[in-house]
Design a protein around this nucleic acid. Structure first.
Lengths: 150, 150
DNA sequence: GTAAGTACGTACAGAAAGGTAAGTATGAAA
DNA sequence: TTTCATACTTACCTTTCTGTACGTACTTAC
């Protein structure tokens, strides 16, 4: 007999919860923003590319990450910097020189994201194999023939 | 035109490698599609919500995941199903009844994504604290109530 | 003297993601 | 009888995302 127990409609008390620990299932939780930045199209790849002992320069990252535009790389780096995951050090020299690296927090984040990426890369054969059997999907959804499940 | 030498050569980057193992840094690699589905706005939350021993029904998921629309939930589930991460079982009954669950592959995926989510949720205080100091930024949000945790 | 590299900022536009509302078939509750 | 719930689909529209192109200020290479 728990109709509403799946999700309480509202709780004024969850507010304090939000500050102690995020709740991604809650619509208004700020953790969703962090998730958005980290799992944005380029966020994952930037974090991974920044792993390692050396700092990276902007155009170096651009070459590492296949397909990023300058605009998107800059924006992604700014997001991650604002979230405290990325360090940016700019040298005031004539041809601009900027070095990016991960903060301690960013290194933790990068590890998680790396684990995910590694899993995808190694599991890809299984998944791709499945795609081969089942016809198209992905970004484009054509008016596919509706599977008559009923 | 490949200049991959910036990265520490962990593995030879041959053509056959791409079929045996994805390479997310490569623009054309199909693993990017999987990443897109899993890290889509709702993909992460769906995978997490499906963790556990029980199956979930559509509207149950909808209630669990704050803010999803029916349209987006349906689409996300279809993506993940097509990738072989989610099982869908439809019963041919009068009020529709469909049960969703994770495939073995999906359970692995959910673990990775869960690790990431857990990290975000526990790290949120650090990050939010940083937002408060830095002038308001893109994507960053003001605290709904100015309750300052000291 | 001209092109290229650096690390972006900005304006514009097309693509994609996402939301809203409505419809479907049917049984059960009010 | 009207309404509600289920599990979607579809059309339509808005918001967000992302790419292209260009500008910058200056140095080095050709």
């Amino acid at each position: 007999m728990k109709k509403d127990s799946i999700l309480p409609p509202k709780q004024p008390d969850t507010l304090s919860d939000k500050f102690q620990r995020g709740d991604l299932m809650a619509e208004a939780c700020p953790s969703r923003t962090v998730l958005k930045h980290m799992t944005s199209r380029w966020g994952v790849l930037v974090l991974i590319a920044l792993q390692g002992p050396t700092t990276r320069r902007f155009s170096e990252l651009r070459r590492l990450i296949g397909g990023v535009s300058e605009r998107m790389l800059a924006q992604t780096l700014q997001w991650l910097e604002a979230d405290g995951l990325v360090n940016r050090v700019a040298f005031d020299v004539v041809p601009p020189h900027v070095e990016y690296s991960l903060t301690p927090l960013g290194q933790q984040a990068a590890e998680k994201v790396r684990d995910l990426a590694d899993w995808i890369e190694t599991s890809l054969p299984h998944i791709a194999q499945r795609w081969a059997k089942q016809p198209n999907q992905e970004g484009a959804q054509e008016p596919a023939v509706s599977a008559d499940l009923r």
